[in-house]
Amino acid sequence: MGTKELMQTQPNKSESVKMFQKGLAVGFPIMLGYLPIALTYGVLAKQAGMSLTELTLMSAMVFAGASQFMGANMIAVGSGAVEIIIATFVLNFRHFVMSLSFMNQLRGVALKWKIPLTLGLTDETFAVSALNPDEAKKEKGAYFYAAIIIVAYLSWVLGSLLGGILGDIIPQKLSQSMGIALYAMFIGLLVPSVKKELKVGLIAIVAMLLNASCVQLGMSTGWAIVVGTVVGGMSGIYLLKEEKEE
């Protein structure tokens, strides 16, 4: 929260620093959501037989929570490498769709920025970045998105390492309660947009129902989210008509 205060003082600092600090403030909720999950992942990966280096390396190189939990579980039960890698691909393919949208939003930003930004794309960094689209058009806006991703990345990697070192330090009841954090963050991001534009809520509901139906039909979580996002997003082709055409 200190970042917010910093933003108000020191009026004559450079634009990039201001953008970066703004990104830190906007990205802070991700840290709140990631830390408990990263700690849990660290504990679980350690129990799965991974070394401290391996589990931290996985967080640093894969940077995708759900797939790392799955990976650690599959390592624990002795699944084959190919099987684990294919399952990871399926589970994380949704980021391809999100990146298409994010990169379209960042059209004004240079490719040398877009590459690291898209490599740092997760459900959470995408959600926060996509719902703050105005910075993409501002000068030095890339610093804003970079800050969001750095907060998220450091929380995830360091949290994993801590979990591996400290083991079960968060009481189970508390860590279970903290499982709602990221969902609440998604809701906290979505609601203000819905208040501004009701149609946006309709798009989300269409996607929810599609996702739930696909899960009911026995589709894997990964594909169900892809279908919900891609097909649900198509409702926007009609719903977002006669709006700002960028």
């Binding site: 298409l100 809520g201 649900g232 997003g233 960028e246």
Partner: peptide
Amino acid sequence: VNRWLSAIPYAALGALIFPGI
């Protein structure tokens, strides 16, 4: 296509929230 891409964040949020929550 641009409208579809700008709808993706909202659709993604919906799909990420429910039924996962």
